[in-house]
Computed example of a mutant assay.
Amino acid sequence: MAEENRPAFAAERRERILELVRANGTMSLRDIAVKVRASEVTVRRDVRALEAEGLVDRRRGGAALPGRIGHEQSYAGKSEQCAAEKAAIAASAARLVRPGDAVTIGPGSTAEALARELASHTDLTVVTNSLRVADALLNAAGVEVVMTGGTLHGPIRALVGAAAEQFLDGLRVNRAFLTGNGVSADRGLSTPNPAVASVDRALAGCAEEVIVLADHTKIGADTMVPTVAPEMIAHLVTDNRADPEVLMTLEETGALVHVAVVMDARGQ
C-alpha cells in the first residue's frame, strides 16, 4: 500500500515545487526543501523530473522557470524572497561605509535593505536612481540623498534612461553598491533588463570600487545583460548559503568575499 501511495505523493510534491518556482521565478533547493518538507536530495530528484518535462530549468543549487535568463521578477516577489539573507547582507555591507563617504546605490530589494541600515549613519552622501532607496533614507538626518533624473521603470521602482546616465557622467564617489539577478566568475554581475543594466554601469563607472550584494540564489547564476565585469568587483557580500565552490571562483577573479551569517543559521 505504501508503494502505491508514493507516486501520488511525489506528484503532489512536484506540483507544489512548480507552484513555488512560478511564484518566485527562481529558488534554491534548500528553500524548496523547507517549503515542501522534504530532503534536498529528494527535491533535486523532483527538479530533474520537472526539467525533463520542460517545466523548470535546473540551476546550480536551485531551479528557475524555463527561459529565466530574460525574465524580470516583480519587485514584490523579490522583496519577499530570502528576506533574512538580504537583511544580513545589508548589515555586513553597511560596515564597508565610512564617515564622509559619497556612495552610489542601485535599485533592488537588497539595496533597499542596505539603505535602511545606512539611515543611522552621519556625514554620508547617497546618489541613487532607486525610489525605494531614497524613501528608506527619507528621515535620515545625517544622510544627504541625491536622486538621478530619468524615466521610471516600474518593476524595480527605479529611474533609467539617458537622463539618469547623463546625471551620473562625471561624478566621482567612493563606492558603488549594486545588486542584480546573477553573479558569476565568467560574466560578473548581470540583470535581465538592458535599460537597468545601462544605468547600473553608470553607477559603477563613477565609483572608486564596486561592491556587489547578492544572496545565495544569485550566486553562480547568469542573466541576459552583464553590468559589472568580474575583475571590476572589489567586494562581494553574500550569505552563508551560497555555493562555496562558486565563491572560490569569484575570489580568483579578485573579489574580496564577505559571507554574512543568517540569524537562524546560528540557531537563534
Rank of each mutant, 00 (worst) to 15 (best):
D186W: 00
I32A: 10
A234Q: 12
G267H: 10
E80F: 12
L213H: 04
A83M: 10
V210N: 08
L96W: 08
G149Q: 11
T217E: 01
A242S: 15
T104E: 08
V183T: 10
G161L: 10
A84D: 12
I69P: 02
A260L: 11
L168W: 05
V103M: 12
R16I: 00
R187S: 07
L65Q: 11
A8D: 11
R116G: 14
R16S: 09
L189D: 12
G182H: 04
E85P: 01
T148S: 05
C82D: 15
E53C: 01
D239S: 05
M232P: 00
A94S: 15
G67A: 05
D222F: 02
L20G: 00
L55M: 11
R172P: 00
R201N: 10
Y75K: 02
L131K: 09
D264N: 11
N24G: 03
A202H: 08
G25T: 03
T148R: 06
G70R: 08
L189E: 06
L118K: 00
M147K: 02
P7V: 08
A115P: 06
D222G: 00
I211C: 10
D215Y: 07
A113R: 14
A140K: 08
S120C: 10
V225D: 02
M147P: 09
E112R: 15
V259F: 10
P226N: 02
V21Y: 10
R172C: 00
V210D: 03
I17D: 02
A102G: 11
R44A: 12
D186S: 14
T125Q: 09
K218G: 05
I89E: 04
L256I: 12
P107K: 02
H235Y: 14
Y75E: 10
P194K: 02
A87H: 11
A162G: 00
V237K: 03
L65A: 10
K218M: 03
V246Q: 09
L168R: 04
H258E: 12
T238W: 04
A63G: 11
V261E: 14
I219W: 13
